[in-house]
Amino acid sequence: MTLLVVEGLSKRFGAMVAVDRVGFTLAAGEMLALIGPNGAGKTTCFNLLNGQLRPDAGRVTLEGVSLVGLTPRRIWRLGVGRTFQVPAAFASMTACENLQVVLLSHHRRAFRVWRSTRSWYAADALALLERVGVAHVADQRCGTLAYGDLKRVELALALAGRPRLLLMDEPTAGMAPADRQALIALTRALVRERGLAAVFIEHDMDVVFGHADRIIVLDHGRILADGSPAAVRDDAQVRAVYLGTSPGGRGQ
């Protein structure tokens, strides 16, 4: 089932075309990796999808509903969750409270003024932390969490809004290799189990080629290749532009 449709998406900053007529579709249960050299337009592409930026041209629809021109808040409400490259949990709150805030927002209870936050959705929050494997830090302030744990809390925060589409900006950046594999495997399991679709920007090629169902390679704002990991790996154009051809022969 097609969940996300992107057509002719374009954005320019002054004279520079950051994203140039990008189009793709995404089905539920699919993990799509967005790769490309720095400056290829990956982050701009993301910000066009999540409403942080407004496209100059193009269409984005989620299950038939247009997302163009909506605020990040509206887009989130329509079922687009996101994780930030630098984990941006609310630092003064515990992991559990972070999730409770998101759940309160999701259930439109953020303006309640009397009953203590403690009693709202604590079980749901714990269940989510449990699911991403960090229930043991539920009562620690996010400002003091270890980086790997924070990344997992970040994932739980994105899931708390019951998204249908997950946008993840470098979900494993800054983590140790073993943790990276575990986190992305967990993400993949969640995507399957909940019937979500996920788009992620990633620089770790082990993560990308090990776990993505499909890869889109961007270069200078355009789609250079779109296909299975095997197809992308063997694409000569991709190897020339993204991986660089070393005098040693094969891609770097």
Binding site: F84, A88, A89, F90, A91, S92, M93, E97, Q100, V101, L104, S105, R109, A110, F111, R112, V113, W114, R115, S116, T117, W120
Partner: peptide, 16 residues
């Protein structure tokens, strides 16, 4: 209460 937490959330990270 939730309002206070939501307000603090805005303080901690408006973007998030």
């Amino acid at each position: 209460a939730p309002f206070g937490y939501a307000l603090r959330a805005s303080r901690d990270s408006a973007l998030r």
